[in-house]
Computed example of a mutant assay.
Amino acid sequence: MAEPSLPFSIESSKVVILTGAGISAESGIKTFRDNDGLWENHKVEDVATPNAWNQNPELVWKFYQQRRKQLLEVHPNPAHNALVNLSSVSKEFVLITQNVDDLHERSGSKNVIHMHGELRRLKCEKTRISQDRMSKKDLQSEFIYCNCCSIPKKMRPDIVWFGEEPYQLNKIFENIEDCDLFVVIGSSGHVYPAAGLVNLASKFGAYTIIFNLEPPINSHAFDEIITGPAGITLDKWVNTIIKNYENSEL
């Protein structure tokens, strides 16, 4: 991997990060693009769409409860930790993730924008009020009911399913339009609108980099492509950035 040669100093720059499933996969979390599009042996349309919830809520609930329990078994990897280190030397740092796990927060990242929701949270079907629900009783196989309605209503995973609009899009667009460096980590470039954010960053003059196991389908949109496990490539890249920063302070 070539030495970082950014066209600006990191300490005077606004950095926006977008992470995808690849960074979580390195911690052992399976993605729906594994095994020919099956997700834990389920078709995506059977467990990750509003129609699936309406048609077979028991299956969807069981699927997501298994994924929620899995959070207790996985841990942040060096790529998650590298982003915390990068944030410490950036003038402004914004972390956006497509992932629904909490590995960024557990590594020490703050104010993460979860554009596709969070496994830790459930929301009332009626009021849409979202709550962090990860106690032992919240991980049971039976449905969980809200405490915000006079007659408790069933709660659903606070996840943006296929066909639903991602969260905080305006905030995401505003940050990308104003950044100097846009870095994507672990994204195949298949899922929109996330896959199109690099085009927005480029339009407003940001330098764009992607770290991924292999070049994504939208690789032509990036200024720089770095392939390999993010736990190795990103960690090395960030360490070099920090070393250069520390040397500049001498």
Rank of each mutant, 00 (worst) to 15 (best):
residue 58 E to L: 02
residue 49 T to W: 01
residue 102 D to E: 11
residue 138 D to I: 00
residue 229 P to H: 02
residue 50 P to Y: 11
residue 190 H to Q: 09
residue 83 L to F: 13
residue 223 D to Q: 11
residue 248 S to K: 10
residue 133 R to M: 14
residue 244 N to I: 00
residue 36 D to Y: 15
residue 192 Y to T: 00
residue 48 A to E: 03
residue 162 F to V: 13
residue 104 H to M: 09
residue 122 L to N: 06
residue 53 W to Y: 10
residue 76 P to C: 01
residue 120 R to P: 15
residue 237 W to C: 02
residue 157 P to W: 00
residue 207 Y to A: 05
residue 8 F to P: 08
residue 15 V to R: 07
residue 222 F to N: 04
residue 208 T to E: 03
residue 16 V to P: 01
residue 172 I to Q: 09
residue 242 I to M: 06
residue 208 T to A: 07
residue 67 R to Q: 07
residue 138 D to E: 13
residue 44 V to D: 11
residue 3 E to P: 04
residue 208 T to H: 10
residue 214 E to K: 09
residue 168 Q to R: 14
residue 16 V to W: 06
residue 81 N to L: 12
residue 67 R to I: 04
residue 231 G to P: 12
residue 154 K to M: 14
residue 119 L to S: 02
residue 159 I to M: 06
residue 183 V to H: 00
residue 136 K to P: 05
residue 158 D to R: 06
residue 145 Y to H: 11
residue 250 L to T: 14
residue 240 T to H: 11
residue 100 V to Q: 01
residue 4 P to N: 02
residue 200 L to R: 09
residue 215 P to F: 01
residue 86 L to H: 05
residue 92 E to N: 12
residue 127 T to L: 12
residue 214 E to S: 12
residue 224 E to Y: 14
residue 215 P to K: 10
residue 30 K to Q: 11
residue 44 V to A: 12
residue 234 L to A: 06
residue 16 V to A: 04
residue 34 D to N: 12
residue 158 D to G: 05
residue 179 C to S: 11
residue 141 S to Y: 13
residue 189 G to H: 12
residue 188 S to D: 04
residue 90 S to F: 03
residue 189 G to R: 08
residue 244 N to C: 00
residue 116 H to P: 15
residue 46 D to H: 13
residue 139 L to C: 06
residue 97 T to D: 09
residue 19 T to V: 00
residue 103 L to W: 05
residue 56 N to E: 12
residue 21 A to L: 03
residue 197 L to T: 14
residue 154 K to Q: 15
residue 214 E to Q: 10
residue 206 A to V: 11
residue 177 E to L: 11
residue 78 P to W: 02
residue 227 T to F: 13
residue 91 K to T: 00
residue 169 L to T: 07
residue 45 E to W: 11
residue 191 V to K: 10
residue 62 K to F: 00
residue 72 L to E: 08
residue 178 D to Q: 07
residue 9 S to N: 15
residue 92 E to C: 01
residue 23 I to W: 01
residue 4 P to S: 07
residue 83 L to R: 08
residue 27 S to W: 10
residue 225 I to S: 11
residue 16 V to L: 05
residue 57 P to L: 08
residue 181 L to Q: 08
residue 31 T to G: 05
residue 85 N to M: 09
residue 60 V to Q: 07
residue 53 W to P: 08
residue 187 S to R: 05
residue 117 G to P: 13
residue 35 N to S: 14
residue 125 E to F: 10
residue 108 G to S: 07
residue 17 I to W: 00
residue 32 F to C: 00
residue 122 L to S: 10
residue 109 S to N: 13
residue 104 H to A: 09
residue 165 E to Q: 14
residue 26 E to V: 00
residue 108 G to L: 01
residue 141 S to L: 14
residue 213 L to H: 08
residue 82 A to G: 09
residue 238 V to M: 06
residue 51 N to I: 14
residue 11 E to Q: 15
residue 75 H to C: 04
residue 146 C to I: 15
residue 45 E to F: 10
residue 5 S to I: 03
residue 193 P to V: 05
residue 226 I to P: 07
residue 60 V to A: 03
residue 117 G to I: 09
residue 19 T to R: 05
residue 76 P to D: 02
residue 144 I to H: 03
residue 236 K to N: 13
residue 52 A to D: 12
residue 165 E to V: 14
residue 233 T to M: 09
residue 250 L to S: 08
residue 104 H to R: 00
residue 123 K to I: 14
residue 49 T to A: 06
